[in-house]
Design a protein around this nucleic acid. Structure first.
Lengths: 161, 161
DNA sequence: CATGGATGCTTAAAGGCATCAAGTATTTGG
DNA sequence: CCAAATACTTGATGCCTTTAAGCATCCATG
């Protein structure tokens, strides 16, 4: 692991001047991000499954901290509005959310989390064992550094319509 | 952004001594990882979709650098073997992979990527625009640091059966 | 050698996710 | 007032996923 760090320091130095070819670090970093992203996602899905939820149901539920119209959920999830209908149907059938008609615009239905819904999503967050374990492997300072680096990655990743 | 780093350095210092309560950094880092993981995953799926592949199909294809038995693919994808049958069926229908009977054990069928399959997966990797853009926001040194940190996260995340 | 138990793969059924096209309310702007 | 836009739902189709069951092949033990 420490060898790895040295290896990449050398690689970094080698391509430093003008960085003409795509960096070897970048390529390997991409692989690593795919691998970790997948593993992390599976942790999320597995934890949600322990509460009888699919990952997309958990993701939707997490968005409902305040009343949200269906349309808004569709945008946040990056999927078709017709899709949200079914997901909310199933969450509602389990008593985790409720649909409320908007008074100002009667076309709109706002989704509201029930107490049980709020409790469930909080529990899922707390129970993501693999992710917690992984983060425990870092010192607090390292977490700060990681946070800062990931924060800088965010702008490039988020503006996908 | 730099303020953020200072903020978290302070937070880190505050919880330093014995770290009794769950760290605030850890909690925010978890949120960030969920957000970035999702965004990154969507980039992956969208890029694969441009080549008419689902994300799982792309993921499977990426595993087939050498002949792999169906069972091996199921383990690498973390899903049931019966699932792999259908995914390989569809990839095979598009001419991206081929099934070959293993000579030593005739129960086994090895999946082999065609030239077109190899080319496709390479193109998808190269075309993950959002991810590449995001990584370009970092300097080479920062990428090295990020790689080293993520590498340390891996053991905790990967040993999920 | 024979056979019973693994092992590798496939099929079928059932449920959820995703997109598209079409349909119903409701609002809004000319 | 009426046409277009908007919010949501429904239905069709296809893929993913799991479970249970089935077939072929291997292997270990008697």
């Amino acid at each position: 692991m420490i060898e790895d760090l040295k290896l990449f320091s050398r690689l970094a130095g080698m391509t430093a001047p003008t960085d003409p070819a795509p960096s070897a670090v970048k390529s390997r970093l991409l692989d690593l991000m795919v691998a970790l992203g997948t593993a992390h996602w599976q942790d999320y899905a597995a934890t949600a499954a322990q509460h009888g939820l699919t990952s997309v149901q958990a993701r939707l539920l997490a968005q409902v901290t305040a009343p949200v119209p269906m349309r808004g959920l569709a945008e946040q999830l990056g999927c078709d509005a017709s899709n949200v209908t079914g997901i909310v149907d199933r969450l509602q059938a389990r008593g985790l959310v409720v649909r409320e008609s908007d008074e100002r615009d009667r076309r709109v239905k706002n989704v509201v989390a029930t107490d049980e819904g709020l409790a469930t999503i909080q529990r899922i967050r707390a129970e993501m064992q693999a992710t917690h374990t992984a983060l425990d492997a870092l010192t607090e300072d390292e977490r700060v550094t990681l946070y800062a680096l990931l924060e800088r990655l965010r702008p490039g990743l988020e503006n996908r319509d």
